[in-house]
Design a protein around this nucleic acid. Structure first.
Lengths: 167, 167
DNA sequence: GTCTATAGAGTGATAGAC
DNA sequence: GTCTATCACTCTATAGAC
């Protein structure tokens, strides 16, 4: 629900309907309410990226292959632009301040890990930081643009261009 | 209010407080309520971009100068990453469908106008479309990243990289 | 009187909290 | 399921301009 409708769009009624749980159950499982639910979704997203994106980005001996893997996993994760990034929607929404540190952690770690892979691929550190920041911003912008144009294809096209620049 | 808090974050109470107007006045001026208010803000944004960005992009004889102008105006408009793009927030929010055509109009025209300028600057049409799409997505992504990292500087750095690519 | 702009109490619906 | 707060919104009353 959060990844489909964003933070404010994921109402407890919707969540309840989608999970088949009443509000009592939801508040039993998540005593701190909606904020906790979103925080745990964000933590799960962090864990998924850690395992499927950051970890290969660190451990794969061939950094070029690691980067291609990152892009493929990212494309799959966002269903080629048909899903939205929860972190991105929160960053633009009014709830931003509540999740400030978690957001900067998520984006910051993505940038840092990608920077390291680019350095291993032979880029100079300043060049690598710029490329990494650019790529992470590019993914977020591609999600906005795909939804704005109503054209999921815009997301996949953007990922290809990002891959070419990192390549 | 819309540009600061997004669509859902801009409540009528906030708008009333910020304008000093009661609900009677607001509904007298905007009979169709909040949706009309946002639509008129979007129209004003369209008009501002038409006058300050698209028009120079079309008419300035030197396309390279036109593009530099576009980036400078964009940086100023978004207060170097401290303001948010209403179209971008709506694109990611639940209200997206209500404004679908206006959003695709806004992003589409930006891409089309920039594409034309790039062709005049000597790029091949397919290359120009790709660069334009990439630049518009890059601006949106930079706004997300700047808010996500809590670092407005990320926006200005991204604009510089975009400028270098459009070069 | 009429028109336009105003304020703000009050509507039902729904939010999240409990 | 109930609570209160708040949502977008409606309605009535009223102000001054012409």
């Amino acid at each position: 629900m959060f990844r489909e409708h964003g933070y404010e769009g994921a109402s407890l009624t919707r969540i309840g309907r989608a999970t088949g749980l009443g509000k009592g159950s939801l508040y039993h499982l998540f005593p701190n309410g909606k904020e906790q639910m979103a925080a745990e979704v964000l933590a799960e997203i962090d864990a998924w990226f850690e395992e499927n994106v950051f970890s290969p980005l660190r451990d794969e001996p061939d950094p070029r292959l690691a980067i291609r893997l990152m892009l493929a996993r990212t494309d799959a994760y966002f269903l080629s632009g048909r899903r939205v990034c929860l972190a991105g929607t929160i960053a633009l929404a009014d709830a931003r301040d509540q999740f400030a540190e978690r957001l900067s952690g998520y984006f910051g770690e993505w940038i840092a890990t990608l920077t390291a892979a680019l350095v291993r691929a032979g880029r100079s550190p300043p060049e690598a930081v710029a490329l990494a920041e650019d790529a992470v911003a590019g993914v977020q912008g591609a999600l906005v643009l795909a939804r704005g144009l109503g054209d999921p294809g815009a997301f996949s096209r953007a990922l290809e261009r990002i891959g070419a620049r990192l390549g």
